[in-house]
Design a protein around this nucleic acid. Structure first.
Lengths: 216, 216
DNA sequence: CGCCGGTTTGAAATCCGTCAATTTCCGTGG
DNA sequence: CCACGGAAATTGACGGATTTCAAACCGGCG
C-alpha cells in the first residue's frame, strides 16, 4: 500500500517514538491521523479550559502547564507537560486549564476516536495506564518536594527539570519567573531572590535574565 | 455449583460493591480469592515499605497512608486510603511506605495473579485506569490545596474528608494530630492551634480531643 | 530614544515552625 | 473505684523563612 500523507506526517513526528501512538500499527495510525488536528500555540495561549469538552492528544513541542485558579485569584500549576506527554484525558473533561508556557505544537484527536483506538490496541491502553500511574506518582512526588522543601530546593528541582528538557546545563529559560513561581507554590519575588542567592553561591551562572547555566 | 468458602468471603466483603473486584465474575473471584491474604493491621503497622516487592489488593476497613520520609527525617503523607481503595500498584513496587493510621483490614493478592485477572477482565482494567486517573487528580488537587491554602483551609479540608469517611458530621477523629499534620504539610502544634481557633469561632465543636462535630 | 513587560532588590509584616512547659486523656493495675 | 503513668494534645514565647508592598532596574523593540 502506498504511503499516504497521513503516514508521512506521523513518520516525521518529533515525538514519534515517545508518544502513546508509538503503540499503533501503521494503518491504525493513518486512521487516527485522518482526524487529527495540529495546532501551534504561542506563549500564554489557552488550549482548553477546565471542564471543556476538550480533545485529547500529544504534545509535540514546547511546554504546557495544567493550572488551577484559586479562590483569591492566583494560579497554581499542578503539572508541567513536555514533548511526548499525553494531553487531557480519554474519558473525562480536563480538570485544569491547559496553557502554553512557551511556543508549542500539539496533535489532537476527538476523545471518542482515541477511545476506540484504545479498544483495539490493548498495548496502547496499557501504556496509557502506565503513564497515568507515572503522572500520579509525579504529582505525589511534587507534594513532598513542594510541601517539605525550602524555596531553594524547589527552584533547584525545577531548574534541573528544565535543564533535562533543554538537554544541556546551559540554556535559555523557556518560562518566566512568574511561571516558575506558580509551578513551585512561591511568589515570583522569592524565585528571583533564590536565583540571586544560587548565583552568589556559584550554583548558578547567568547572562541576562534568561540565559543560565545550572549543573546538577 | 455449590458455593465455596471463598465465594462466601467475597459476598460478605464490606467493600464488595466498591472495590475493583466488583468487576469480576463469580468464578474468577473464587480463583483470585483462593490466593488472597487477609491481614488485620493495628494503628502504626507498616504494611509495605517503599520498594518492597509487595502484594496489591483492597483496603477493606480503616485508613492507610502512603508516606515519604524526607532527607531530614520527617514524614510527608502523599495520600490517604479509605475502604474500597486499591492498595499498591499492579505492575510496580510501591513508591511510598504504606502504614495503617487506624486499625485496618486488607485483602491482598500476589501482583502477578492480579495482573492476569486484569488480562481476562477488561472491565476491571478500565476501572483500574479510571481509579488511577482519579488518584492522579486527587494528588493534583491536594497540590493546590496544600500549597496555596492557609493552615486553616488545609485542616478544614481534612476534617471534611474525615467527616465524609465517617458518614456523619459528628464523629471520633480516627487519626492523631500528628497524622493530620503529616498529611497537611504542617506541624502538630499548628494543627492543634488551628483547631482551637476553629472551635473558638464556632466552626468546630469538641468533646475531648477525639470527639468532634464539624459541619461543612 | 523611550516605553513596557519582566526582573531585581529592599523593608516591613505575617504566618508558621521550633522549642519548651503544661495539661488532658485514657488505659492499667493496685 | 481510685491512683498512676505515659502518650497525646494544648498553649505560650520566640525566631525565621516567605509573602507583601513598593520602588528601581534592565533589555528588547517599536
Amino acid at each position: 500500500m502506498a504511503k499516504t500523507a497521513a503516514d508521512l506526517i506521523c513518520e516525521a513526528c518529533a515525538v514519534r517514538d515517545r508518544a502513546l501512538c508509538s503503540a499503533l500499527s501503521a494503518d491504525e495510525l493513518a486512521t487516527l491521523n485522518r482526524h487529527s488536528i495540529r495546532r501551534s500555540l504561542a506563549r500564554g495561549d489557552l488550549l482548553f479550559r477546565e471542564g471543556d469538552d476538550a480533545l485529547c492528544g500529544n504534545l509535540i513541542a514546547g511546554i504546557l502547564k495544567l493550572a488551577d485558579v484559586t479562590a483569591d485569584g492566583d494560579a497554581q500549576t499542578v503539572a508541567l507537560l513536555f514533548p511526548g506527554d499525553f494531553i487531557g484525558g480519554v474519558s473525562a473533561a480536563p480538570r485544569h486549564d491547559i496553557v502554553a508556557l512557551s511556543a508549542a505544537q500539539v496533535c489532537l484527536f476527538p476523545r471518542a476516536l482515541f477511545a476506540s483506538a484504545l479498544e483495539s490496541h490493548r498495548r496502547m491502553e496499557k501504556m496509557l495506564l502506565a503513564r497515568t500511574h507515572e503522572a500520579m506518582e509525579n504529582a505525589r512526588g511534587r507534594l513532598t518536594l513542594l510541601l517539605r522543601g525550602s524555596a531553594e530546593a524547589r527552584v533547584e528541582a525545577l531548574l534541573a527539570d528544565l535543564a533535562a528538557y533543554e538537554g544541556s546545563p546551559t540554556f535559555d529559560l523557556p518560562i518566566t519567573r512568574g511561571d516558575m513561581a506558580d509551578a513551585l507554590g512561591l511568589t515570583l519575588e522569592t524565585v528571583s531572590r533564590v536565583m540571586s542567592r544560587l548565583k552568589a553561591r556559584g550554583r548558578l551562572e547567568t547572562q541576562g535574565p534568561k540565559r543560565v547555566r545550572f549543573a546538577v
